[in-house]
Write a protein that binds this DNA or RNA. Sequence first.
DNA 1: AATAGTTATGTTATAATATAACAATATGAA
DNA 2: TTCATATTGTTATATTATAACATAACTATT
Lengths: 181, 181
Amino acid sequence: MNLANSKPCVAFERHDHRDCQHQLMSAAKALCAKRNTRLTRRRLQVLEILLQSHQPMGAYEILAHINKAQSTQLTPQSRKKTINRGALQAVAPPIVYRALEFLLDEGLAHRIESKNAYICCVRPGHQRAAQFLICRGCEKVAELERHDLDLLTDAARVGFTVDSSVVEITGHCADCGKNAS
Amino acid sequence: MNLANSKPCVAFERHDHRDCQHQLMSAAKALCAKRNTRLTRRRLQVLEILLQSHQPMGAYEILAHINKAQSTQLTPQSRKKTINRGALQAVAPPIVYRALEFLLDEGLAHRIESKNAYICCVRPGHQRAAQFLICRGCEKVAELERHDLDLLTDAARVGFTVDSSVVEITGHCADCGKNAS
DNA sequence: AATAGTTATGTTATAATATAACAATATGAA
DNA sequence: TTCATATTGTTATATTATAACATAACTATT
């Protein structure tokens, strides 16, 4: 299956998310294999957490997921130990931030600047900068891909060389717009 | 003088910044007078600090400016007191964040999401969302105003209603591009 | 397999950014 | 003036992120 050609998921549109997750996970593995970069257990875990929804998650929210999983996966003995050691057992922030750094570098996740949060990329392998539609109702985020000619023309006009761009549009998606406004 | 019609300052272009400051300050005062909103001493102080340059400033950086001014403005006696009380005398973060909130609401300043920083608006009174060119060389930020038809069309296509937008383009301005790249 | 070099993870502490909650003061309207 | 409201001041704490260093895991070579 050629994932690069499959239609990108628009978060607001109803879709089989289970399928969506699997496709994106496969694509991620394939990409890292091709690039010879290491999608390790931790990085995979963070990606899996991000893939659970099309809603951006804060780093500490991701951390909480990991710690919850951590405590669930314990044997009775080690669970007891963990409880005795209290919060010290928990995974710490740098773990998450480093995994996120990797995923961002590989284009497997994006940072939503206006929310200090992170979201899975629905077009892994497409290096072009993306634009985001952020719904304030359902909190889902859709990823678009445009060339933004208007803006880039303006930038060029003043002699500006573009390295990267952040485009985040906040509002209400079709469904939430009906109910909200 | 009709400020609304004067050409907006493009931060990267050489200009008489003293004049720029005065124009923007007058425009701010005029706007608040017209709207019957209160540009109080604190708010004015924060706006003045932002107007010192076209570089975004962190909230705590603004705070530092205020505290520096605070200690300078003391009489010999009260300065002594301040020193005796140590850091407790210093102005605290909420002061700055509240002034910024006012300035953002009034469209006299913008928040640069990708830098968690704040910058003066160079088109006060223009409510339309702005776009920013952020230079990594000189760290200046230019404010543009475009209609972004491409993006809004895409948004409309998926039934999305826009409330607000963040557009931040990072790179190098004409001058810095020559030296850097 | 042992070694060494490198990359990744774990850990501790702390930096940087932002807000909640409540007290005191200033402002504007009656 | 007096009341109601808006603003500022203050204290404490929440939230987001990184520095610095220790340990462990991988990789290529012997």
